[in-house]
């Protein structure tokens, strides 16, 4: 499996994605006008895709990261265990991302 490069790629994506996080926080601290710009962006198709992609990158990197922590502790090196961990990270990352967005749209708070 070539998942370790995906771990790196999602890490690099999250790195530059922090610019969105900063923009959100600075806008919230600046006032309603600045925040309206953020909401206009996150409400657009591109914005929604980026937000969804960012969520997946975060969750996948976390799941894949747990796999690396397991290896750091000296477990999970048998071929079957490696395969299992990798598939769990891959499926878990996609599954949790979709679940989070369903929850966000269903019961996400605010207004």
């Amino acid at each position: 499996m070539a998942l370790s490069i995906v771990h790196r790629a999602t890490g690099v994506a999250l790195y530059f994605g922090t610019l969105l996080l900063v923009w959100w926080l600075i806008a919230a601290a600046s006032g309603p006008a600045a925040y309206a710009h953020v909401q206009a962006f996150t409400g657009s198709i591109i914005g929604r895709l980026i937000a969804f992609g960012y969520t997946w990158a975060l969750i996948h990197h976390a799941m894949s990261g747990i796999r690396h922590l397991v290896w750091d502790l000296g477990y999970g090196f048998k071929p079957s265990e490696r395969e299992w961990l990798t598939w769990a990270a891959l499926i878990g990352g996609i599954g949790i991302t979709i679940l989070l967005w369903i929850i966000a749209y269903a019961i996400g708070g605010g207004r």
């Binding site: 919230a28 309603p32 600045a34 925040y35 909401q39 966000a104 996400g108 708070g109 605010g110």
Partner: peptide
């Protein structure tokens, strides 16, 4: 971050549709 992720996701979701005043 693994420990903090659950409360952070909860916080972000709780302001998912808020306006600036609500988020602030």
């Amino acid at each position: 971050m693994l420990l903090l992720m659950i409360p952070v996701i909860f916080i972000v979701m709780s302001v998912f549709r808020s306006n600036q005043a609500g988020v602030a």
